[in-house]
Computed example of a mutant assay.
Amino acid sequence: MSDTSNPIRDAITDAIGEHEVILFMKGTPEQPRCGFSARTVAALDSLGASFAAVDILPDPRIREELSAISNWPTIPQLFVKGQLVGGCDIVTEMYESGELAQVLGVEQPAPIQIENRL
């Protein structure tokens, strides 16, 4: 009889189920370790969204299992209500269109107007 338990996969699946919004990223929201993760965190922060985050860097098996679960090869990966939303490019596009705020159930902030007085 083979042992089919996979504690890392189980922990990832549990985390996705337990958190309405969860970001798997390189580093932490306070200290992102790549530009893509930093941009994704910035989009979520600018919407005032609360989210859980998992640093995939301490154990390469996290990334491997996450990609097997999500069928998405790159990091970061944002999940909302158990569903993969996407990576940095998709999150950025959704942020710019206002769709990310809708998915997260938050208000889209008004764009900042910068006056050029040169």
Rank of each mutant, 00 (worst) to 15 (best):
M1E: 11
M1V: 13
S5P: 01
N6R: 13
P7F: 10
I8M: 14
I8V: 15
R9I: 02
D10C: 01
A11M: 14
A11R: 15
I12P: 02
I12D: 09
T13R: 12
T13F: 08
T13E: 15
T13Q: 14
A15M: 11
A15F: 10
G17Q: 12
E18V: 05
E20C: 01
E20G: 13
V21E: 05
I22C: 00
F24W: 14
F24P: 06
M25R: 07
K26W: 07
T28V: 03
T28K: 02
P29D: 06
E30T: 11
E30M: 03
Q31R: 08
Q31H: 01
P32I: 06
R33I: 09
R33N: 12
G35D: 04
F36C: 15
S37G: 13
S37Q: 12
R39W: 04
T40I: 09
T40P: 02
T40W: 04
V41Q: 00
A42Q: 08
L44I: 01
S46Q: 07
S46Y: 02
S50P: 02
F51Y: 15
F51T: 14
F51G: 12
F51R: 13
A52W: 04
A52Q: 10
A52H: 09
I56G: 00
P60W: 04
R61S: 13
R63W: 08
E64R: 09
E65N: 05
E65L: 02
L66S: 03
A68C: 02
A68V: 04
A68N: 08
I69M: 05
S70A: 13
I75V: 15
P76Q: 10
L78M: 11
F79L: 02
F79C: 01
K81N: 09
G82I: 07
V85Y: 11
G86E: 01
C88T: 03
I90E: 05
I90S: 08
I90M: 10
V91E: 03
T92R: 09
M94Q: 09
M94D: 00
E96C: 00
S97G: 03
G98L: 07
G98S: 02
G98I: 06
E99N: 05
L100H: 07
A101Y: 01
Q102S: 12
V103C: 07
V103I: 15
V103N: 04
V103R: 15
L104Q: 04
G105R: 09
G105P: 00
V106P: 04
V106K: 10
E107T: 15
E107I: 13
E107Q: 15
Q108D: 12
A110K: 15
I112W: 06
Q113D: 10
E115S: 12
E115V: 14
L118R: 05
